[in-house]
Design a protein around this nucleic acid. Structure first.
Length: 341
DNA sequence: AATGCGGGGAC
DNA sequence: GTCCCAGCATT
């Protein structure tokens, strides 16, 4: 059998499997004409960047209910968008989603890979996914699932991004590009799993070099672990867990979210700076929380203090998990006994 | 090519 | 603890 016949067989095997085993996901809904809503496809793809499907699904349902269209999203305040994103992480996704929605509300929605790629928050993966799934353009996606499946298919233990894209481009079924992309990702997410590949359930074993090797789980090699930096910081709680003085964070880390005023550093160095900055006094240690964020391990000392800053309703603001933990040191129920004001 | 950017699931 | 997740922007 020559290469062309091998390719046809591979495509047929995976698409047949997909027609039977495709996951039932809310962003896969189609209209009477069999088309998907590009808006919903876009939102789902942004939400699923570095986020597992089971988790993204929960946010998706709520998000499209609150913001049912590009126009609705563009018209909403960024703070509302961040509130809907609260706890999901990588908040630049929400900021870019809002920025791109404003652009699309003014200039219209792109209908091609190149057009989508020009929008903030849309990279090669997302542009390929949207253009293939919503418009039928022949663009191959390259995500973590595709990387792992193709690494095993060809027994390439250390696949580069360029190599994966080339392989994906070659394999892509030009007749059904959207289905092909989802089939490859579904296979990676449900069968060709990182630690425990379920090869007996896989339609591609006959052509899979890693399966033939007998040790498919050795592909691909694990990526070097990210270095974790230990960070110590101090936060001030002025008010109580329900109504407190909050600051909006700038920069890229948790940018746009609100949180307790915070200074990086030890208690000795950061606490005085914090008290000075806020004209606060009488600090009392409420407790210490630890929070891990992929590349840093944060130890946060939380102090209650007295100051005249204006308080805000905590529940109305988008907060990070770190700030939720800090505020959790002072349960609303116990506030009456513990509160100092 | 490397790094920063969240948070949680599965083991 | 480990590795990974429908990646992108920036350098």
């Amino acid at each position: 059998m020559d290469g062309s016949a091998q390719l046809k067989k591979l495509r047929a095997a995976l698409l047949t499997w997909f027609d039977r085993s495709a996951r039932d996901l809310p962003w896969r809904m189609v209209d009477a004409a069999g088309k998907r809503d590009p808006y919903r496809v876009w939102v789902s793809e942004i939400l699923l960047q570095q986020t597992q499907v089971v988790r993204g699904r929960i946010y998706f349902e709520h998000f499209v209910e609150q913001f049912p269209s590009v126009e609705a999203l563009a018209a909403a305040p960024l703070e509302d968008v961040l509130k809907a994103w609260e706890g999901c992480g990588y908040y630049a996704r929400a900021r870019n989603l809002h920025k791109a929605a404003a652009r699309m509300a003014a200039e219209g929605m792109p209908m091609t890979y190149v057009g989508w790629l020009a929008l903030p928050g849309v990279g090669p993966y997302t542009a390929a996914a949207i253009s293939s799934l919503a418009y039928g353009e022949a663009r191959a996606v390259n995500d973590g699932n595709v990387r792992r499946v193709l690494s095993r298919l060809h027994a390439e233990a250390q696949p580069t991004a360029v190599w994966v894209q080339q392989q994906a481009d070659t394999l892509l079924d030009p007749q059904r590009p959207g289905d092909w992309n989802e089939a490859l990702m579904d296979l990676g997410a449900t069968v060709c799993l990182p630690k425990t590949p379920n090869c007996p359930a896989c339609p591609l074993t006959e052509q899979c070099a890693a399966f033939q090797s007998g040790t498919p789980k050795l592909y691909p090699l694990p990526k070097p672990a990210a270095k974790v930096r230990a960070v110590e910081a101090v936060a001030l709680l002025i008010g109580d867990a329900e109504c407190a003085y909050l600051e909006q964070r700038g920069g890229t880390l948790l940018g746009g979210l609100y949180g307790l005023p915070l200074e990086e550093g030890s208690i000795q160095t950061a606490l005085p700076r914090l008290l000075e900055r806020l004209s606060a006094h009488s600090p009392q240690l409420l407790g210490t929380v630890s929070h891990s964020m992929t590349h840093r391990q944060i130890t946060l000392h939380v102090y209650a203090a007295q100051a005249s800053q204006e308080r805000q309703q905590v529940a109305q603001r988008p907060l990070s998990r770190l700030d939720h933990k800090a505020l959790g040191l002072l349960p609303p129920q116990g506030a009456a006994q513990v509160r100092l004001l």
